[in-house]
């Protein structure tokens, strides 16, 4: 088999849609990062869930109870790193207000990283002696043992504010409802979109979808990071346009009778006058791109 044959097999396997789309999105993001780096003003909309962080920490300070942070059930991946990045901002606010914190972990690696980051925040705020190593804890790496541990801390310490951010599964509602019982103000964000409705039902503020990944850029207000958000928004606009064009073209093609002399070539059954879904342009482009 010649090299070009491998490329043909490769293209058959992966199609060109994925490559084209990813390259386009990456180009958008990089262009906007460069544009923002050159000093072009970048503005993004308000995210209420992130704006409420100071209020939640302030309320915990008023009532003299701790704030609770949980980075979900994920291992040390991009999602959890993002959650810990947001928590570092929350901890900074808590340090300034003198509010006690609890950061409970499901994964040993996440625990180790979270503890160092929290320690760094105390150090950078000039109060390393106030850092309590027990404020960042490893609870368990079993899902419901972890949920029971978190629920126990919520109930015993009557936490005033909770921040659930990261990858959550069935345990999400156990923890959020326990926090609701003790009257905690709750901000949540999860990458598991099936769990998002549970958080919406139980929490005061929920970061939806990519708002979670926008948090570090939003809280840090660094122009270069904000540029990447604008790039992702450009990609969203392209996708919306694509969906609209595809919906119209697909509907039009699906309801356009195929001329009689072309039906045999397309393998139509007797009496069939419209193309089947796999024969339509957008059906072929999106479905036939893989084996």
């Amino acid at each position: 088999m010649e090299l070009q044959d491998y490329w043909l097999q490769y293209k058959l396997e992966w199609g060109w849609v994925e490559y084209g789309t990813i390259l386009l999105v990456v180009a958008f993001i990089l262009y906007n990062i460069v544009r923002a780096g050159r000093g072009k003003g970048v503005t993004i909309r308000r995210i209420p869930g992130l704006d409420q962080i100071d209020e939640a920490v302030g309320r915990a300070t008023e009532v003299g109870r701790p704030i609770l942070m949980v980075p979900g059930l994920g291992v040390l991946d991009g999602i959890t790193v993002q959650a810990i990045t947001i928590f570092s901002s929350i901890v900074r606010t808590a340090v300034r207000f003198g509010t006690p914190i609890r950061l409970l972990n499901y994964d040993g690696a996440v625990y180790a990283v979270a503890q160092e980051i929290v320690r760094d925040v105390y150090l950078s705020e000039g109060v390393p002696e106030q850092f309590d190593p027990d404020s960042v804890r490893f609870v368990s790496d079993r899902q419901f043992a972890f949920a029971a541990g978190v629920a126990g801390v919520i109930q015993r310490e009557k936490v005033a504010a909770t921040f659930f951010m990261g990858a959550f599964y069935a345990e999400s509602i156990i923890m959020a409802e326990n926090a609701n019982m003790v009257g905690a103000i709750q901000v949540a964000a999860t990458t598991q979109f099936i769990q998002t409705p549970f958080f919406i039902a139980t929490c005061d503020y929920v970061l939806l979808g990519d708002e979670f990944y926008a948090a570090s850029a939003y809280l840090g207000r660094q122009p270069v990071l904000l540029g990447s958000l604008v790039g992702a928004d450009w990609a969203k606009m392209v996708f919306v346009m694509f969906v609209l064009i595809a919906a119209i073209a697909h509907s039009f093609e699906a309801r356009t009778p195929v001329p009689a002399d072309e039906r045999q070539d397309l393998g139509f059954a007797d009496g069939q006058i419209y193309k089947d879904r796999p024969q339509l342009f957008f059906g072929k482009m999106t479905k036939a791109s893989r084996f």
């Binding site: 990813i22 999105v25 990456v26 993001i29 990089l30 990062i33 991009g78 999602i79 790193v81 993002q82 990045t85 947001i86 570092s88 901002s89 901890v91 900074r92 980051i117 760094d120 925040v121 950078s124 990458t191 979808g209 990519d210 708002e211 979670f212 990944y213 926008a214 570090s216 850029a217 809280l219 840090g220 660094q222 270069v224 990071l225 990447s228 958000l229 790039g231 992702a232 990609a235 969203k236």
Partner: peptide, 20 residues
């Protein structure tokens, strides 16, 4: 899209975290 943007920021060393 969000995780793609974040991955690019991390790979290019732009994501310093809001604590820094």
């Amino acid at each position: 899209l969000g995780i793609l943007a974040m991955a690019i920021r991390i790979m290019l060393g732009l994501e310093r975290g809001v604590s820094v």
